[in-house]
Amino acid sequence: MKRKTLVVCSGGVVAVVTAITVIGAALNSESGLFGAEAAAWAQAGGTIGALLIAVYVAQITIEAEQHRRRLAAADLVNAITDTVDMALNDIDRMRQAVKRASPTEMANAVAAYDPSTAFPLGHLLKLSVERWPSPIVFMRTTAVNEHRAQFVDNALRVAAHLKDGMLAEWNSLRSLEANLDKSEVAFRQSVAGIVLAD
């Protein structure tokens, strides 16, 4: 229930209960508005009002906690996405060289490769699954990391020997790059699902 609606409903219920209490006390009491029965009715009305206020305060507290959790989850999703992007951007030149089957581009990409860009992703994957936005995002991030490592290891191993006519090596790298591409797409879909769900 929205806060404004809850306030209006609570205020309306308290007003109605108070009016009924006063009218009931006046009509049913032999001593008028200030008898013992009127005090009991007033106490009952006050109790109901206090309960409604307690429900309102609890609702505000719950909404604040939910908002805090959503912000923390959004921050974590952004950190995960940025870390995956950094790890993938560093090997983009290698991936493009494989798609074009260019030994020269591959040699240049390997020379420019910085292995330290994968370290943050490895550290992120050490977080317990419970801290991740969802187990699916964790699994798909792990898949991106594993496929990235397989592609890079193979590219570094064969880069020095690649030539235009070495079809088997290029096909092997293409296959690994395709696996990496699929895991990247699945990762981005799972992250988009988290963002859209909130």
Rank of each mutant, 00 (worst) to 15 (best):
M1T: 15
K2L: 00
R3N: 02
V17N: 01
T18S: 06
T21L: 12
T21A: 15
A25I: 06
A25S: 11
A26V: 11
E30W: 09
L33W: 15
F34D: 14
F34T: 14
G35N: 03
A36D: 11
E37S: 12
A38I: 11
A40T: 15
W41F: 14
Q43F: 12
A44I: 12
G45C: 02
T47I: 15
T47F: 08
T47Y: 09
L51Y: 05
Y56V: 05
Q59M: 00
Q59N: 04
H67D: 06
R68H: 05
A74H: 02
D75R: 13
A79N: 04
I80Y: 00
I80V: 03
D82H: 02
T83Y: 00
M86Q: 08
M86Y: 08
M86R: 03
R93P: 07
R95I: 13
Q96F: 08
Q96R: 09
A97E: 03
V98P: 03
T104M: 09
T104C: 06
A109P: 07
V110G: 10
A111R: 08
Y113P: 11
D114T: 12
K126S: 13
K126H: 12
K126I: 13
V129I: 14
E130H: 14
E130N: 11
R131I: 15
W132N: 02
P133Q: 03
I136R: 05
M139I: 13
T141Q: 00
T141I: 02
N145M: 08
E146T: 08
R148I: 01
A149K: 15
R157K: 13
V158C: 03
H161S: 15
L167K: 07
W170K: 04
S172W: 11
S175W: 10
L176Y: 09
E177K: 10
A178T: 15
N179V: 09
K182H: 15
V185P: 09
F187I: 05
R188N: 08
Q189G: 13
S190F: 07
V191G: 02
A192F: 10
G193P: 09
G193H: 08
A197L: 05
